[in-house]
Write a protein that binds this DNA or RNA. Structure first.
Lengths: 230, 230
DNA sequence: ACAAAAGTGTTGCTTCTACACCCATGC
DNA sequence: GCATGGGTGTAGAAGCAACACTTTTGT
């Protein structure tokens, strides 16, 4: 039950910064409360050790399921953090991922899990364990940058959404207001959205039309040199 | 002289994709010839094991010096490769970096080193060890993407360069021709270049004016919301 | 009828693209 | 004097930013 190597090896972990957007357009991150030292009882990113027989992304997905119940989320590698002192016990290198989930559909799922997990607004995060604050900062920067030139924002919305929801999403992430008419013109001209014959329900005002993002169309346009840009 | 852990740990390495641009505007990568199994005698990216007391970037820089003699190069983390079968002997996770060097000045230095190192044109790479082809591909994609919205291209040029050299650099990396007048207008309007009172020497035609990139100006403009873009 | 958000066009301005000729230098 | 690349301006097209009112629906 022990593994011996000629040279010392850092431990290898994965950590996930999972973003969600709630009904009030607050950008949130999923955290878990640690029940082990160090940083016992502090909030931390979901994550854990990479097993010897699994790839990094597999490890990240496994930890997400185990710790938060989230499955099939959009997940991309963010950065690898390897300073020597980031874990007080041991040399631990962590490969960080960022994820995007649709909070409208996933909220209940995550809540049913055994571990103490919670969504926190990014503007109002508790102190985090290890260097997780730095990881979150980098994830935010990456999200802000990437959302402008890749159509990943749709991962944060339900499959069918209104143009106003989409606009609010960009306004929240980019932290700037956008002009309604210009936004709609721009996004519709790209031809990436499918206009549905369905409308919002349960709102006390004129119901907005629903749209769906078409990843297939995007792949095709991209092959022809099209560049998404907000 | 042995290190024992409760759970098995992947080995951790770093690898560097170092780009250089030669006098004929060929984009090149620095490779070393392996003298150990596996992949003995094959070409590979410079790199090696991360020591327990050094950070990832420190390890990358150390390996670069040891294996190629290159020092003080621009270096940025690229991606971490961790599939289980990427090394036939053992589970090895590698953190890849990409680097940019000024070939005009560094060419001799690298050549003086003991190991068998060589610059290869990216269009004409030999077969590479491990998954290094994939790493190189990703580095190329990243370089192509990043060079457009961050002024990193200057790292590939001598400190003093002509606008034509700069234009050729972009044409090479982006793999597209650019209009001379439009390019010059655009780049000069950004106010990032310092016009020198010096000119090319040793050319058999009108000597071109030399310019220098001003990183200080760039930092200032960036703080004020300026975005570099080619 | 009122409140709340949906939906829709035009104009001026800026930026981008396309394009051709004279200039300076070394041989 | 010729070959080589250096250096420069303009016009038309496209894209961007700014801006306000009517429509629909629920209460």
């Amino acid at each position: 039950m022990a593994y011996t190597y000629e040279f010392p090896r850092p431990a290898l972990t994965v950590d996930c910064v999972v973003f969600g957007l709630d009904e009030e357009n607050l950008l949130k991150i999923l955290l878990i409360q640690r029940n082990l030292a160090p940083f016992e009882n502090q909030w931390a990113l979901p994550g854990g050790f990479v097993r010897i027989e699994e790839s990094l992304e597999t490890a990240a997905r496994r930890e997400l399921v185990e710790e938060t119940g989230l499955e099939n989320v959009f997940l991309e590698q963010l950065y690898t953090f390897g300073s020597c002192d980031r874990d007080p016990r041991d040399r631990v290198v962590t490969v960080a991922y960022y994820g995007l989930v649709n909070l409208w559909e996933y909220r209940l799922k995550a809540a049913t899990d055994a571990r103490d997990t919670r969504w926190f607004a990014v503007a109002d995060l508790p102190p985090l364990a290890f260097d997780h604050e730095a990881i979150v900062q980098l994830a935010l920067t990456r999200l802000k940058g990437k959302v402008r030139y890749e159509p990943i924002g749709f991962e944060l919305l339900p499959e069918k959404f209104t143009l106003t929801q989409l606009q609010r999403l960009y306004e929240t992430i980019l932290e700037q207001e956008l002009d309604k008419r210009n936004f709609r013109k721009k996004i519709l001209k790209m031809n990436l959205l499918i206009q549905l014959d369905e409308y919002q329900t349960g709102v006390s005002h004129r119901a907005a039309r629903l749209y769906r993002f078409d990843p297939e169309k995007y792949r095709n346009l991209k092959k022809k040199g099209f560049n998404f840009e907000i």
